[in-house]
Design a binder for these strands. Sequence first.
DNA 1: TCAAGCATTTTTGTCGACATTCTTGTGTCA
DNA 2: TGACACAAGAATGTCGACAAAAATGCTTGA
Lengths: 253, 253
Amino acid sequence: MLPLMTAIPATTHRGGPGGPPTSETLATAAYRRLRADIVEGRLAPGLKLKVHELARRYGAGPAPLREALAQLTAEGLAVRMEQRGFRVRALDPRALGELVRTRCLVEGLALRESILRGDAAWENAIAGSAHRLASLPVSLAPDRFIANPAWEAAHRAFHRALIDACEAAPLIDFCERLREEADRYRTLSSVASYPQRDVPAEHAAIARAALDRDAERAPALLAEHLARTGDVVRLGLKEGPEPAFRRGAAEPR
Amino acid sequence: MLPLMTAIPATTHRGGPGGPPTSETLATAAYRRLRADIVEGRLAPGLKLKVHELARRYGAGPAPLREALAQLTAEGLAVRMEQRGFRVRALDPRALGELVRTRCLVEGLALRESILRGDAAWENAIAGSAHRLASLPVSLAPDRFIANPAWEAAHRAFHRALIDACEAAPLIDFCERLREEADRYRTLSSVASYPQRDVPAEHAAIARAALDRDAERAPALLAEHLARTGDVVRLGLKEGPEPAFRRGAAEPR
DNA sequence: TCAAGCATTTTTGTCGACATTCTTGTGTCA
DNA sequence: TGACACAAGAATGTCGACAAAAATGCTTGA
């Protein structure tokens, strides 16, 4: 695989940026690809995950694949059924409510703390990410909706910047995880058109309130923003794509 | 799932309580035992986890063990170093601060929500678990401290009961995870004597405020309670047991 | 027609062996 | 001495094969 010239023998203990990340293991590679395929919806919720099939697909043996699956199970992206293999975790529309509710509470809390503790750098980061977000088109096409990856990334960065000064690392991680889970619902839902909503205006208002250090208004606006998105997704689910929703054994194949 | 007349064909293997959970797999068994050994401190933080050795210890091959390790990695109880195996995740005393802070914020939030939403059953559960907790001795020995498993369980149940009505399942799960992480620090710390603190009184006060539906006072008391415990642990760490703390390669073997 | 019983096929979970990589110990040269 | 290269040793990560279990299909009997 690699040239024998083990360029940097024992140094670069931790392959940080710059040094070689100590060659990725097959299990990790499979994990990353599998994870992306689930999060981005290419593997539908509820789908059976046959080890052999995945092994072929990702070019590895069963062992690394099972490793990856175990990891995803712990993350809640897959479920294991003893002696019956793995599946992509099904999405329960009833759970969506509590998920959104949790996001509103927790992300609001983190924003409030950030407002109380944030410094100038935090303000700058918010202003910067808000500006960048506003400068990008939500959709790649002007008439119909085609997700713009750059906008998505900027969106993530903006929300992250808001809560970045809360000085509670586990809390930030939790928010990210909740967002990812919510994204799975959004991807699945037919949230094509973004109806009667001025999302950029919502973002702008949140940013303004945060920069004004309004510890009451900013979290409230953020919660409202998240709840509204949740409503749109919920609607898109109701009348949306049928396939692969029931968690039972009613799967293709 | 349906009574296919498979009454109890091949179960008995590992007859769990109640219904047959379809015989536990070796990987899952190893996972559970390994996890317990880490959480309860029998495997010190930072310790190298050699697959072959663990395989012997838990009576299984390398494959199930790697599966278990991958799962624990995702949970944050172990860390994987590509091409260099696994270790028990080291505890960073500096991270303890943010951990405690997060607990105060999040558990306080969950309690506030529970107070706003809880019904009579919630109140009963609090009163009941508080009573049981008060009826048990903290220590098995009257003079020196020997952890009482029954008290520990009741303690968990009490804290859980407080936030159980917040109607945000992910939030509750998060609280449990944070508690577990905090417990790892506590176990490691030499928190032998419980000095100048009336822990039962703190619990009683929290329970009273919660039952009074005081959405200001109860979360504040709870946060104070958690923070105080955090302080005790922090002290116990400073002058506590040296072994296995540095995250570097300075491990026994 | 339908349900139950049996045989077949698919899939899961596990093992033992092996190549690769990291680690450790020793010797060599400045 | 000290740095370096190198070789022996150990540990990791991966494969292919295999037994056990589950799912599937088929046959039979009311």
